[in-house]
Computed example of a mutant assay.
Amino acid sequence: MANIKSAIKRVRINNESREKNQSMRAEMRSHIKKVDALVEKNDVESAKDALKTAVRKIDKAVQKGLIHENNGSRQKARLTKKVNSLSA
């Protein structure tokens, strides 16, 4: 364990940040899985609504630096492609 006051604070801040990041990443992944499940059920309208929220969560994760910008773009493109294939 750290002895210096600033190091103790850094440990505390890092732990708080890690917990926040983990919950945000888990929430993003849950929304992605929800879209995939709705695509499997062929539920077009619900899938479109879920896609909107999933894209919002992915964008927020990119903005916060949780995932790389290219990774976020790739995930959004794949989800959009799946949802659009239902309509066609």
Rank of each mutant, 00 (worst) to 15 (best):
N71K: 11
K52Y: 13
S87R: 11
V39Y: 04
V11C: 02
S17L: 10
N3E: 13
K5R: 10
R10G: 01
N3F: 07
S46T: 12
A2R: 10
L66V: 03
I13E: 15
A7G: 07
S85D: 13
K34P: 00
S17F: 08
D36C: 06
L51P: 02
A37K: 12
I32E: 01
K81D: 15
I8Q: 13
N70W: 07
E40I: 13
L51T: 03
H68L: 10
A77V: 02
S85C: 10
D49M: 07
E19I: 07
E19Y: 12
D59F: 04
E27Q: 01
K52A: 11
T80W: 04
D43N: 14
A54H: 02
A7L: 15
A26P: 04
A7Q: 15
N14P: 00
K34Q: 04
N21M: 07
S46V: 07
R18H: 14
M28W: 00
A37R: 13
Q75M: 15
Q63S: 13
V11F: 10
K64R: 11
D59M: 08
N84L: 15
M1Y: 10
D59W: 08
Q22H: 05
N71Q: 13
D36K: 14
Q75L: 14
L79V: 02
K76T: 05
R56L: 14
S73C: 09
E45T: 13
A61Y: 01
K64A: 09
R56P: 08
H31R: 09
M24A: 13
L38Q: 01
S23W: 00
L86G: 05
A2K: 09
A37Y: 08
K41I: 09
S17Q: 13
Q63T: 15
A77H: 07
V83Y: 03
V62T: 09
I32C: 03
Q63D: 14
R29S: 05
L86E: 10
Q75P: 03
E40F: 07
Q63L: 14
S17E: 13
G65M: 01
S17K: 11
V35F: 00
S6G: 08
K41E: 12
D43W: 06
T80P: 07
K82V: 03
R74N: 14
S85H: 12
I58Q: 01
T53S: 11
V44T: 15
A77K: 05
S30W: 03
K82M: 08
K60C: 00
V62G: 05
I4M: 05
S46N: 15
K60N: 07
N84R: 10
N42K: 15
S6R: 11
I13V: 15
I8S: 10
E69K: 08
K64D: 09
H31L: 08
A7T: 11
